[in-house]
């Protein structure tokens, strides 16, 4: 069982620079052909100050944490048993290539179902940019199969 004492635990914050090349690679990998996401001049014509971070890419930036395994190590999770159960985003401001985003993660909840066969970890992440503007919040539910 995952120790419930970690509910409310805050991880050390970290910052990640958003790189244009990374966004173009993500566009290729997801079949994105909208020029706003691959051509800086098209993005600017559409009123953006650079290539936008697409809606789900905040999750990728979050996983670019310098200590990728911090969460699993803290909670003692075996990643062969993990499934991504839910993911959601709330957006407050757009983010762009060239921004430096700061991620603050915390354990919002830990609970189990089926007499502990399935355990759920709810993680909340707050994202701010280099100006201190609140950009987005992420909610992630990870499922550990203990069967």
């Amino acid at each position: 069982m995952i120790d419930r004492k970690f509910i409310g635990h805050k991880m050390p914050q970290f910052s990640v620079a958003v790189e244009k090349g990374q966004l173009c690679f993500f566009a290729k990998a997801t079949g994105q052909t909208d020029p706003v996401y691959i051509d800086e001049s098209a993005a600017k014509t559409a009123g953006h100050r650079g290539l936008p971070v697409p809606p789900t890419f905040f999750f990728c930036l979050e996983s670019a944490s310098p200590d990728k395994d911090a969460f699993r190590d803290l909670l003692g999770l075996d990643y062969r048993k993990l499934l991504h159960g839910e993911q959601s985003f709330t957006y407050h401001e757009m983010a762009y290539a060239g921004d430096v985003l700061t991620f603050e993660q915390s354990v919002e909840d830990i609970y189990d179902k089926k007499n502990g066969l399935l355990e759920f970890v709810v993680r909340k992440t707050t994202v701010t940019n280099q100006l201190g503007t609140h950009v987005a919040d992420l909610h992630s539910v990870t499922v550990s199969r203990n069967g």
Binding site: F26, A29, T30, G31, Q32, D34, V36, Y37, A46, P52, P54, P55, T56, F57, F59, C60, L83, H84, G85, E86, Q87, S88, F89, T90, Y91, M94, H139
Partner: peptide, 27 residues
Amino acid sequence: MLSMAWLGRLLTNWVPQEAIRSFGVRF
């Protein structure tokens, strides 16, 4: 998250991204 990225494309094909207030899925 690959499928979620495709759903994101569905949304941004329809409205500019800055119109999206929230976006969530269950796998």
